[in-house]
Simulated scan of single mutants.
Amino acid sequence: MDNEQASQTAIFMRSKRAIVLTGSETEEEAKQALSQVVIIPRPPKFNNVHEQRVHMKQRLAAGFRLLAKYGWDEGVAGHATFRDPEYPDLFWVNPFGMYFGHIKASDLVLVDHEGSIVRGNRFVNKAAFVIHGSIHTARSDVVCAVHTHSMYGKTFSTFGRPLLPISQDACAFYDDHSVYDQFGGLVFDSEEGKRLVNALGPKNKALILQNHGLVTTGSSIESAFWFFVAMERCCQSQLLAEAAAVNGYRDLCVIPDETARRTWDTVGTQKAGYGQFMPMFDMIAQEQPDCLL
């Protein structure tokens, strides 16, 4: 998060008013408090690529734990990947058939874009390779991609249409997601992977797979997972709103384009996604610290 974004979303300037909190600090302590720098959360800097890789594997594992905590696992379906920081033509992915709630950083498997295992002793979901390999090949800006068969995402996908900007949260996806309006069964065909990427487009961060589920991408692991959480909840919100309305989506109050676009500037950016994920990471890392092993 930079100063410009912080100024849009939080108060971060230190007041020049000098006060003493009676009973808890001396005048000297009050002066020291006035000189403290306000900390703005930022992505970490790494001393070497090994340190960065370990960090990223831990974040991906924590993301899987979150998916499991929210009930967004479905048997052996679902996968998330990140591009290796040293070898951008390789990506890390979850082992096939391993429960999201048990995944540790050390369990992740490294594969190449030809579908061969480079590191790890577990095999990989072929659909994960086809979908994510296609995305990582076509979109150099995508560091991480997330896909599961979450309940509201796959339910909303049956409409074959995009989300509407009916809430502040939904504006995060305004003019930033698309729909793949075909379903050809399990994604085992490389040509199907290419069609998915074409539907995602050169800039969108999310894709609704008709009759299937959601895919979100990010320039960081944190943003990709946050936008999956946010999109799933926006699908739930719109389903509830349409079910409550007499005339379905026709009765919904849609946010005007200009306002939705301006709201996206605050809640829809990759930096915003990173910041939104961090409280969730802190929660899961404290609850399930073994995910970092």
Rank of each mutant, 00 (worst) to 15 (best):
D2T: 09
N3S: 13
E4W: 14
A6S: 14
A6M: 15
A6I: 08
S7T: 14
T9E: 11
I11G: 15
I11M: 12
R14T: 11
S15M: 04
R17N: 11
A18I: 05
V20F: 05
E25F: 13
E25P: 04
E29V: 03
Q32C: 07
S35E: 11
V37H: 06
V38M: 11
I39V: 15
R42K: 11
K45A: 12
F46G: 04
N47L: 05
Q52Y: 00
L60G: 00
F64H: 05
R65C: 00
W72S: 01
E74L: 03
E74I: 00
G75R: 10
G78F: 01
A80G: 12
F82P: 01
F82D: 01
F82R: 04
F82G: 04
R83L: 04
P85S: 15
E86K: 13
Y87A: 08
W92S: 00
V93E: 07
N94Y: 06
F96P: 00
G97P: 05
M98H: 09
M98L: 15
M98T: 15
G101W: 00
K104Q: 14
K104P: 03
A105M: 02
V111C: 02
H113K: 08
E114L: 12
G115V: 03
R119T: 05
G120R: 08
V124Y: 12
V124E: 09
K126A: 13
F129L: 07
I131G: 08
G133H: 07
S134D: 03
I135M: 14
A138I: 03
R139A: 10
S140D: 14
V146P: 02
H147F: 07
H149P: 06
S150D: 09
M151Q: 15
K154C: 06
K154N: 14
F156I: 03
T158D: 04
T158P: 12
F159R: 09
F159M: 15
G160D: 01
R161C: 12
P162V: 07
P162E: 14
L164D: 09
S167H: 01
Q168M: 04
F173H: 02
Y174H: 14
D175R: 14
Y180A: 03
Y180G: 01
V187A: 06
F188C: 03
S190E: 10
E192K: 06
E192C: 05
K194V: 02
K194F: 05
V197P: 08
A199S: 12
P202D: 03
N204A: 07
A206G: 07
L207H: 06
L207T: 13
L209E: 04
L209R: 02
H212A: 02
G213N: 06
T217L: 05
T217G: 04
F228P: 00
R233Q: 15
R233H: 09
C235T: 00
Q236G: 07
E242H: 13
E242K: 10
A244Y: 08
A245K: 07
N247R: 12
R250G: 00
L252E: 08
L252D: 08
P256E: 10
D257H: 08
A260I: 03
R261D: 07
T266R: 10
T266C: 02
T269D: 00
T269A: 00
K271Y: 01
K271M: 09
G275W: 09
Q276A: 12
E287S: 13
E287N: 13
E287M: 13
Q288I: 02
C291K: 01
L292A: 06
L293A: 10
